[in-house]
Design a protein around this nucleic acid. Structure first.
Lengths: 217, 217
DNA sequence: ATGTCGATAACGACATATCGTTGGCGTATC
DNA sequence: GATACGCCAACGATATGTCGTTATCGACAT
């Protein structure tokens, strides 16, 4: 109950000074994000097989979100219903199928800024820090086009398709499985097991139908 | 500036012996959803699967530490040098080879209690909340035997339990995927990717269709 | 048109705290 | 001596914030 003051000495320091003018047509391009867990990846290093070829090495993705995506995402989600910072993070993770989970280091400063700009406000009477749009905020959202209103899909777009390499596909699927295991109900876990075993069956069929060597079919 | 005061309004609430008036300040808001599977341990955050080598769980049951381990570990580590809560967590993770990382939900309440008991004290002048032993604390450490002084080593002892059922589904699927990765043709890998992404989609649909209990207000 | 440069958004790591739930284990009971 | 009971420590999830570093992308120069 004494100290800790230093912790919030400057809430607005980091990127707190805000000039209004932003959110313009960000020309397409990469979105997504790749890294997940705090570990470099048990599937990357843990397996130890180089699997090096594959074509494009460090694949274009893996980059971070575009410059305004967090802001736009927050506005879009709050346009649906009031939420707190943590819920925003969770919701974005789910909507992007686990590909984009902005960290607290992105969300909270952004919320701070939006509050300063008067686009969001802390809901009164709430239990924690639940934010809702102001009128100005609602107006801002209206000025966004469809793509800007759903920045989480940018993460799935390219990433979910061709550009994604195998390892990333594996990782993201594993992450999805963990989600179900951890947050799901017993019934959901049961379903998840079926999905996994179906996938396994599909893999083996793959190998059987089109063997890498000999035994043509 | 405003908020955050509530964060430490009652530092001693949770399991302080002498609980004074308990109020929920900000707590609540959304009950922390239903019981989830016991997937703690190695699968904590970023799925640190130990397959491929080490692995092994915690002492016997489920994987939880024994009853005074956190407390003893803190005392033992602070006997070496002053540290903050986060550093204690990290140090324990390292010393147990990644098998035991007490969560903040264990560390901070324990530090609180130790402070109340007068065994540790917050170092003055430090930048954050750095704790050091008091004389009483040093004495307490001396009363511990070798094993109590190194609770992190108990985590390295192994015991296999079930729940592997679910995991084995995952593992065998992963093994199948690896087969394809290693021995498959480019076309097969392409197919494998689709299978994985289908599975991922299925997982997320699972979560979306039957929400465990969204943290809604 | 291309390159490069700088402001700053996004990021991961660090840090702290609380809540509801679970399970370790001491004790009372059979 | 087993076991049933219950307290409370340990835990994961929730929640919010900061800091140093990295990379995006408009702007300006070439």
């Amino acid at each position: 109950m004494r100290h800790m003051n230093h912790l919030h000495r400057h809430l607005h320091d980091h990127w707190g000074k805000h000039l209004h003018e932003r959110m313009h047509a960000m020309g397409r391009g990469h979105g997504g994000h790749g890294g997940h867990g705090p570990f470099g990846g048990p599937f990357g290093d843990g397996f130890g097989f180089g699997w090096g070829g594959g074509g494009g090495r460090r694949r274009g993705r893996g980059g971070r979100a575009r410059r305004g995506d967090v802001r736009a995402a927050i506005l879009a989600l709050l346009a649906e219903e009031p939420r707190n910072g943590y819920q925003i993070m969770q919701e974005l993770e789910q909507r992007s199928q686990g590909l984009w989970r902005p960290s607290s280091g992105s969300i909270y400063p952004a919320l701070q800024q939006l509050e300063d700009e008067g686009l969001v406000r802390e809901q009164e009477g709430g239990t924690g820090r639940v934010f809702e749009l102001t009128d100005a905020g609602r107006q801002e959202v209206e000025g966004l086009d469809e793509e800007q209103r759903t920045p989480w899909e940018a993460a799935t777009e390219d990433a979910g398709d061709e550009a994604l390499d195998l390892m990333s596909a594996f990782k993201s699927t594993a992450a999805a499985a963990m989600q179900v295991f951890r947050a799901g109900t017993a019934a959901q876990r049961e379903e998840a097991k079926k999905i996994l075993l179906d996938a396994r069956r599909a893999f083996y069929r793959l190998l059987a139908d089109e063997p890498p060597e000999r035994t043509k079919k």
